[in-house]
Amino acid sequence: MAYLEFRDIQLKFDERMIFSDFNLEIEQLEKVLFCAPSGRGKTSLVKMLLGFVVPDAGEILVDGIRLSGATVNSIRSKISYVSQDADIPKGIVRDVFAAVFKYPVNRHVNYQEAVLSNWLETMALPEDTLERNIDALSGGERQRLALILGILLDRDIWVLDEITTGLDLELKTKMVELLLDYDKTILVVSHDDIYQNRGLREVSW
């Protein structure tokens, strides 16, 4: 059995059929690029995996567990989700990070602020970002913070939804290389050519 499975998925949005009898299997540690044309529901697909969009029919299995109201929390806890909107909770960066690692599900992660500081440097973020308010950061800065958060959570599945938008080529390349180097099951939603020829399995529909 595959690690991630979408079985006979059907999804309608405002009477428009987005998915009908959609099937997809993804193996553990596989790196997949969803590159279907706009409007085909790439984001909806990953949101289905997270239980934010529920299909009209079909089922989703994560590591053999069927996604349902009863299992959604444990499945979400396996996924690091970083989206283009990077809607990080409001507050001072330091406090926001500390709060996330205080949630019971995340307590097993050994989080230290020093690690975060190192990551700020890696991601070309100024040192004083720690003391800054999320609201005062630019979209690109928030996005990189969300990525750091995603990495630090150390979950098995990474869902990266259009995370390179708005970043310059140098930073983008660095980030993509860094991310794809991890031994994780990685699902990328993107139109960016930056992912080409990096050994990702391309999935379109």
Binding site: L50, I79, Y81, S83, D87, I88, P89, N106
Partner: peptide, 22 residues
């Protein structure tokens, strides 16, 4: 209005109460 932010909190494994607290 802030549904995405709310969902992101859930994705970070905050429970429903924690996610809606703001």
């Amino acid at each position: 209005r802030n549904e995405r932010q709310y969902q992101y909190q859930l994705a970070l494994s905050a429970n429903q109460w924690e996610s809606t607290l703001p």
